[in-house]
Design a protein around this nucleic acid. Structure first.
Lengths: 207, 207
DNA sequence: CGATCTGTCTACCATATGGTAAGTGACCGG
DNA sequence: CCGGTCACTTACCATATGGTAGACAGATCG
């Protein structure tokens, strides 16, 4: 039985509920714009209960980051473990990110928020996800060496892929401007568009 | 002589100086996290001078958005006016956005911030830039019809291009994680990477 | 010269914020 | 049954926030 306070009707501990609400708020409103008071009201809890579990707002942020980094890493590692090789591997990862976006959009929102938080919060997240970046660049490089993919700077290529995927998943307002509704159907269309785009950009005829 | 208050040593009116500082702060710290007090201190001005020119923080935001939308539109329109056709046109626009990012990074930062602001602030920006989106999708569609570019959904394609470019220009923390320093040289490398990527994704052999 | 207008300032204020201090009740081992 | 710990609460507090009211100096104009 994990510590974290009394459990509610759904078996969630208080500290878990706080983390969930904080993640949602940080991801959509931003860290600085999120207030402990508002969080507490939303949870029907007193602010001091939050400060009991997380002695300061910054500590709460760190906890949210750590938990999210783990969840993100696990999701990606899982998709990598079962994925094939070559282009199929890229496709599997993109698909799993889109699945994650459908199930837990706040996670992707938090990733975007990282940029604004700067050191040391972002450093925390970055170092947690670092191994994945290493694996990914290594993989891309190998595929290029094997002639399966067009040659690019693997780090910059990864950055471009990341930007495209995250952007198409999180820029809701821009999506609206481009006439895309935030529906599941639209999500699938965006995923397929990205996959097509990446495939024609990356895969060589040799593969 | 445009109104806007007394002019400083460099000929800038007070209201212009306020708009500049606000743009910078909104773009990097975010709207909600920016305070009028901090803005005033940075400008060596009293907060009430800000509220004299812009009667509320929200009005200030609207003014910043309007001015930025105009500046952005003009920069893009200019690059479109002198650009050639086909792939050269896409390349010209991407290059001009990168030039803009080097000269006025806050403009791009504000675009990213739009997503968080939601209605009605984003609507304001979106409707100001809307004509550009129309022109761009129309152009892409024509190129596809002519067989110069691979067929895609033009709106989704534009969204993908936008996401990639904005992401690679604004996600400073992620850039750091990927080992890219925020230098001019790195900017050029990122630009070239994007151009290569887009070219292999879009251009058909027929072109 | 006196009245008015413009731009900026000083003096406040209600509210919201992150955080401290000290309680209260339920449970638990001895 | 009783002292202590755990989870959470009420009661505050200093500071920061967006915003109001009004004074004051300099220019403009009749």
């Amino acid at each position: 039985m994990p510590a974290g306070g009394r459990t509610d009707a759904h078996g969630a501990t208080t500290s878990e509920r706080i983390l969930d609400a904080a993640l949602g708020s940080f991801a959509t409103r931003g860290y600085e714009a999120s207030s402990l008071d508002a969080l507490a009201v939303g949870l029907d809890i007193r602010k001091q209960t939050i400060l009991y579990w997380f002695p300061s707002k910054e500590v709460l942020l760190e906890a949210v980051i750590d938990r999210s980094a783990i969840e993100l890493s696990e999701a990606l590692e899982a998709s990598l473990a079962s994925a094939g090789s070559g282009w199929a591997r890229v496709e599997a990862v993109v698909r799993s990110v889109f699945r994650l976006a459908a199930r837990r959009p706040e996670l992707l929102g938090l990733v975007r928020e990282m940029g604004r938080l700067g050191t040391p919060a972002a450093t925390r997240f970055v170092s947690a996800v670092e191994p994945l970046v290493q694996r990914a660049t290594g993989f891309l490089e190998a595929e290029m060496d094997a002639g399966h993919m067009r040659r690019h700077d693997p780090r910059l290529l990864l950055l471009a892929i990341y930007s495209t995927v995250i952007g198409m998943l999180t820029e809701v307002e821009v999506l609206r401007a481009f006439g895309e509704e935030p529906t599941a159907r639209s999500l699938v269309r965006r995923r397929n568009e990205i996959l097509e785009l990446l495939r024609s950009a990356l895969v060589t005829d040799a593969a």
